[in-house]
């Protein structure tokens, strides 16, 4: 343990290029995936929280299933879709990412995380008073203003949804291993590197990577909290 801690400090300060690359890949994949799943998940969550429509129960049931879906299954699904022999891979369209690229990892991560974002956002919106929207309209809010106010009202829940999404992405390993391939200097992330180092028997390196992952996760969470707390408290 202690050795892992020391190793990680040494590694960070010596600016090990392989490590830097691993961290950058992790952050890039996580950042892009989280951004997109937030852009999908929050509006979806709000929509499900506020609108009534036929088949809503089914959509919610699917969403809850998605929230608890094993990432490796998502990985397998994305793998089969993007594989050269798969339905999307065969199309050969340039915007469809190839397997073993960060693009493929992002696709898998989005599928894994957006149900979490949408689900938590939905329950945050549902926890608001059902009459609040009418009250806002009665105070002269346009539909858009009312929607925005409700989102701000549900901010703690929405923030939790984003953080849950972040947590699921940064810690994911099975799916990214499958569709990313853990390629050095290309698709190796902190989690897949940890698996690899463990497999190699280099436990202290694995521990060091684990500590770095933990630290990044902690910093990002604290930053998100502060940022959102300040922006929304007014």
């Amino acid at each position: 343990m202690l050795k892992g801690l020391l190793d990680s400090i040494v590694l960070i300060f010596t600016g090990d290029s392989a490590l830097t690359n691993i961290i950058l890949v992790s952050l890039r994949v996580t950042g892009i995936s989280l951004l997109i799943s937030t852009l999908i998940g929050i509006p979806l969550g709000i929509f499900l929280g506020l609108k009534r429509f036929i088949g809503k129960r089914l959509v919610i049931a699917l969403l809850y299933t998605g929230m608890g879906f094993p990432p490796v299954v998502v990985g397998l699904f994305v793998y089969l879709m993007l594989s050269r022999a798969g339905p999307l891979g065969q199309l050969g369209w340039s915007f469809i990412p190839h397997l073993y690229t960060t693009g493929a990892m992002v696709v898998a991560q989005i599928i894994i995380s957006f149900p979490l974002v949408a689900g938590f956002t939905m329950s945050a919106v549902l926890s608001l008073d059902s009459q609040l929207r009418l009250q806002l309209h009665a105070l002269g809010a346009t539909p858009r203003q009312a929607l925005w106010t409700m989102l701000v009202e549900a901010r703690v829940g929405v923030l939790i949804s984003i953080i849950a999404g972040f947590g699921s992405i940064i810690s994911e390993v099975g799916a990214v291993m499958m569709v990313g391939g853990n390629i050095e200097n290309a698709t190796r992330t902190l989690t897949t590197a940890i698996v690899l180092e463990t497999r190699k028997g280099d436990f202290s390196m694995a521990m060091a990577l684990g500590i770095i992952l933990l630290t990044i996760s902690f910093i990002v969470n604290v930053a998100m909290l502060r940022l959102q707390g300040k922006a929304l408290d007014q």
């Binding site: 008073d129 009418l134 009250q135 009665a138 105070l139 002269g140 346009t142 106010t149 009202e153 007014q234």
Partner: peptide
């Protein structure tokens, strides 16, 4: 906007008293 309604339950926003009262004006 020629009318306003006050509901039975206060339905206040999670903000300061001042911000709540100013809400409709800000809209």
């Amino acid at each position: 906007r020629r009318l306003t309604m006050v509901f039975q339950r206060p339905l206040l926003l999670n903000r300061s008293v001042q911000a709540n009262i100013a809400y409709g004006l800000r809209l």
